[in-house]
């Protein structure tokens, strides 16, 4: 197997083009039409919400949602003014960015060891990480809360003096709940990598660290991109632990902005929809940025021959 990238790249590119319709070129139109149809079905509910986020609540309350008219931009300006997005976006960034990076890094470490050095022990290890993900987080609420309240940390880590009410605590919890899943996914991707790659590295005398950073990580790019997108989405949208562990409204992540648009009894759903659209933007940006890794694929064949 060749490690050189270019020939493979050329070959794969050459493959992709004529591949579309296959031998039966008469059905070449079928695939795009199917995909377009699926996309429309998938987008439709979302478009429905998008349209209604531009409509006046009094109008939709009177005429029902299956109607036309009452268009306004007010929901967006009101949502922006009322929900304190600036503060909460910052909080979300403080929580999400370190949590995603650390989760992915630590998961890579575990996955690398599990996939690279296959021992029975490692399988048990994987079970240990995976089973952790099967618990409903709500069940762990009280024990975690009690522990965090009891653990004292220096004030530069948390202004409350305990892990409770601190971003660090929340980041740790997010990591703990996501590492298992990521380690499992990554270890399986890594198992799909050819062992021969390591062989030459070992012969060259490369250290474990070098094998990890120079062989494994680059080859896991599509998987890492996929996981980064998913993790960002999940941790960014995570609200349960945030409310329990932070307790102060001005530390809450951006989801709380949306809740601030709801009344005790009454909710203007059109306003909340507008706010939700604004809140969804950062996760979309991350998706678009990392998307090229799914579109381009790998420049290297990475399957056991």
């Amino acid at each position: 197997m060749s490690l050189a990238a270019d020939p493979v790249q050329e070959r794969s590119e050459a493959l992709l083009k004529p591949h579309e319709g296959g031998p039966q070129s008469g059905r070449r139109w079928l695939l795009p039409v199917m995909l377009a149809l699926i996309s429309l079905i998938w987008l439709f509910p979302l478009l429905l919400a998008l349209v209604n986020s531009f409509r006046d609540y009094a109008f939709t309350a009177k005429n029902g949602y299956v109607s036309w008219g009452g268009f306004t931009l007010d929901n967006y300006t009101n949502a922006w003014q009322q929900a304190d997005f600036g503060l909460h976006f910052t909080n979300s960034a403080i929580i999400t960015i370190p949590a995603v990076i650390l989760t992915l890094f630590l998961s890579c470490c575990v996955a690398f060891v599990v996939a690279r050095f296959s021992y029975r022990f490692n399988l048990a290890l994987l079970g240990f990480f995976l089973a952790a993900n099967l618990l409903p987080p709500q069940a762990l609420l009280i024990p975690v809360y009690r522990m965090f309240r009891a653990i004292e940390v220096p004030l530069w880590i948390s202004d409350s003096g305990t892990l409770l009410n601190s971003f660090v605590g929340l980041i740790l919890v997010n990591m703990a709940f996501q590492i298992g899943f990521c380690a499992f996914v990554l270890s399986n991707y890594m198992k799909a990598l050819p062992k021969e790659l390591y062989e030459s590295a070992v012969i060259d005398g490369a250290s474990v660290t070098r094998q990890f950073f120079q062989i494994t990580l680059p080859l896991c790019r599509p998987a890492l991109a996929a996981l980064a997108v998913l993790q960002t989405t999940w941790i960014y949208n995570e609200f349960f632990w945030a409310t329990v562990l932070l307790q102060q409204g001005d530390k809450f992540p951006v989801t709380s902005s949306l809740n601030n648009l709801r009344g005790q009894f009454f909710t203007d759903n059109n306003l909340v929809a507008a706010g939700s659209m604004i809140v969804a933007i950062p996760t979309l940006v991350i998706f678009f940025v990392l998307q090229r890794h799914f579109v381009a694929g790998l420049t290297l064949g990475a399957t056991k021959g």
């Binding site: 998938w42 809140v279 979309l284 998706f287 998307q291």
Partner: peptide, 13 residues
């Protein structure tokens, strides 16, 4: 993007 979008959205939406 179309197929992935539902994953990104907040629960409220």
């Amino acid at each position: 993007t179309s197929i992935y979008l539902p994953v990104v959205l907040s629960l409220a939406l």
